[in-house]
Amino acid sequence: MPGYDTSAQEESPVKILIAGGFGVGKTTLVEAVSEIEPLRTEERLTAAGIGVDDLDGIEFKTATTVAMDFGRITLSDAGVVLYLFGTPGQERFWFMWDDLLAGALGAIVLVDTRRLDRSFPAIDFFESRGLPFVIGANCFDGEQPYTAEQIRTALHLGDPDTPVLMLDARSREDVRGALLSLLDLLIAGAAPAASA
């Protein structure tokens, strides 16, 4: 493979997805921990799949442009550059976008308890694809009238042990806590035999 150099002491990229309905605070969450101002990237998707076509001016009925906001955290000691990708709002297109999930460590599903139904597509999608995730209940105005247990029940989570965290998406500490919780989940999943 030309240009692929494994010898360099550079970080390897890895990504975590930040999902949730429109307006739930995905970009705010990314901004809270990112070392750069969140950036926006766009991709044009069609029902025929993506990867080869960007046919400006040629309209497909099923084509749409999806946008993702993302940020970055360089973890030099671990030798990785962590990219946090906010998933696009048009969930029905995620299925056509293999790149979105390929190689992802896991996801944080951000939920607004006033609009829980908006987080169902993300939860269904990750459960169907087997991508580990934690739930972050964004506490707007610092308030959260529900308990983690109530939220867990209302979300009908396939795995009853899925962590449900109360967080303020603006808080670096809270967001870091959610990321650590996701890592704990991944570590537990990667080492089932080492728990004894």
């Binding site: 890895v14 955290i73 973890l75 030099s76 000691d77 671990a78 030798g79 990785v80 962590l82 870091r176 990321l179 650590l180 890592l183 704990d184 991944l186 570590i187 990667a190």
Partner: peptide, 9 residues
């Protein structure tokens, strides 16, 4: 690797 990422995070 996951533990290294966690520690660094």
């Amino acid at each position: 690797l996951l533990m290294k990422i966690r520690d660094n995070l």
